[in-house]
């Protein structure tokens, strides 16, 4: 069995692989940011914007005190 002992990152392609890794790392960070921002926006929407009567009644004082349009 022939064994290739050369590993990626140690064969003269370090710069390219580092760039790829950084780009991939930034892309995953941006995906995480988007995911968390969407949960945050949904939570703020339910607290301050949803027209559901039950949500309006429960969050009534918070909407008024936080400056959301309420009625």
């Amino acid at each position: 069995m022939q064994r290739n002992t050369k590993t990626v990152g140690c064969d003269g392609m370090e710069t390219m692989m580092t760039t790829k890794t950084l780009a991939s790392s930034k892309a995953t960070a941006l995906m995480s940011v988007l995911f968390v921002a969407m949960i945050g926006a949904a939570t703020v929407f339910l607290t301050g914007f949803a027209h559901s009567q039950a949500l309006h009644d429960a969050a009534h004082d918070v909407r008024h005190a936080s400056g959301f349009p309420c009625h």
Partner: peptide
């Protein structure tokens, strides 16, 4: 209800903030 929704609202704001930090 007011206390609960203050908590929910500020967790929502905090999620937006930490998304910005990220």
């Amino acid at each position: 209800w007011t206390s609960l929704f203050f908590g929910a609202g500020y967790v929502g704001y905090a999620l937006l903030l930490v998304a910005g930090y990220g």
